[in-house]
């Protein structure tokens, strides 16, 4: 489904991703872990098409197509979804209008008719149940005045509407209490099937108790320095990132380079 090869990307002239290789097949869950500043969120945003992040080298093939050549909206229409770490507040844009506009944009791209107001409401009720949200939410402005937990649930709700093939969860667990985390994880698990895939970017192992990964990759200084099965996450939980950092720093052998902040 997704094949990332030697991906380099920079932000405002600073190289953050320094050669990422990753292959994700349908039906798989990949966790990307790593210390703060390792490039996890940058990778997530590069895949979603954030223009501030410049790809300087490498390629990303998604479903046989050059993902990097597509606009952010076309990536979404092709089934790539980014659940934001910090969902954006958009005062004045009603949530129902936003969801319906997004859904219809994707439907039109796929040659389908717009969804009617009636059908939309029916669908919304069904999807909102998945993340335990009540109907009053539809009347509120997008993310405006939402609690941290509500914002994250709203991300999963949007994912439920758009039914992506590739969902990238950017630190969806950060700042969530255990109850909210369970709701969010439950939502994601309900949406999983053999045709789609999940990339879960996270700093903590906790999320992975609920969204169980097939593969765990450790990102450090813009490279994947270690890959393994779900047991790698537990190992990191116990030992922290220090041993991996040390090993990686030795291998990379860049004298004088202190850890990235």
């Amino acid at each position: 489904m997704l094949e990332i090869k030697n991906l380099h990307a920079s932000v405002e002239g600073t190289e953050i991703l320094k050669g990422i290789d990753l292959k994700v097949n349908a039906g798989e869950v990949h966790a990307i872990m790593g210390p703060n500043g390792s490039g996890k969120s940058t990778l997530a945003h590069v895949l979603a098409g954030r223009e501030e992040y410049k790809v300087t080298k490498g390629s990303v093939i998604y479903e046989g197509k050059d993902l990097l050549a597509m606009s952010p909206e076309d990536r979404a229409r092709e089934g790539v979804f980014l659940a934001f770490q910090y969902p954006v507040e958009i005062p004045g844009v009603n949530s129902a209008y936003f969801l319906r506009t997004a859904l219809n944009a994707v439907r039109q791209y796929n040659g389908l008719d717009d969804i009617s107001a009636f059908e939309f409401l029916k669908l919304a009720r069904e999807k909102m149940k998945l993340v335990d949200m009540d109907e009053s939410f539809l009347k509120r402005s997008v993310n405006e005045g939402f609690s941290g937990g509500e914002k994250k649930r709203n991300e999963i709700l949007q994912m439920a509407f758009l039914e992506p093939k590739l969902a990238i969860l950017d630190e969806t667990d950060s700042g969530l209490d255990i109850d909210a985390l369970k709701i969010v994880a439950h939502g994601v698990n309900q949406l999983r099937n053999e045709n789609n895939a999940v990339i879960a970017v996270t700093h903590y192992q906790r999320l992975l108790n609920y969204i169980v990964p097939d593969y765990v990759h450790v990102l450090y200084k813009g490279r994947i320095v270690k890959s393994g099965g779900k047991e790698l996450a537990l190992e990191l939980e116990e030992q922290g990132y220090d041993s991996i950092k040390n090993d990686a720093d030795k291998k990379v052998n860049v004298p004088g380079l202190t850890g990235v902040k």
Binding site: A48, G49, R75, A76, L82, Q158, L162
Partner: peptide, 10 residues
């Protein structure tokens, strides 16, 4: 960008 990432044109 948030809106675009949901499939809405620029």
């Amino acid at each position: 960008f948030y809106l675009r990432s949901r499939g809405i044109s620029k």
